[in-house]
């Protein structure tokens, strides 16, 4: 399965709730980046392992994650 996870990174507040619910442990905070709000945004480290369960998107309080599968 090929999955695509899109983050609206400028709106991320770096709360890590998405990191905590990912069953594959592939969501992480990007320490290299600072977004418009001044937070380190979340991103997917290894998209090849993504199962498109959308757990990250469901728990995101700011609804910034879109999950698609092909």
């Amino acid at each position: 399965m090929t999955a695509k996870v899109t983050f609206n990174s400028d709106r991320c507040k770096g709360c890590e709730l998405c990191v905590s619910v990912c069953p594959k442990h592939i969501v992480a905070i990007d320490q290299e980046t600072i977004n418009r709000k001044g937070y380190h945004p979340a991103h997917v480290v290894d998209i090849s392992q993504c199962i498109a369960c959308a757990s990250c998107a469901k728990i995101c309080p700011d609804s910034i994650i879109t999950v698609e599968k092909f």
Partner: peptide, 16 residues
């Protein structure tokens, strides 16, 4: 391509 999850239509585009 199928969308598994996206922001609900019940929410506006306003930033929380």
């Amino acid at each position: 391509m199928a969308i598994v999850y996206q922001k609900s239509a019940g929410l506006t585009d306003k930033e929380l």
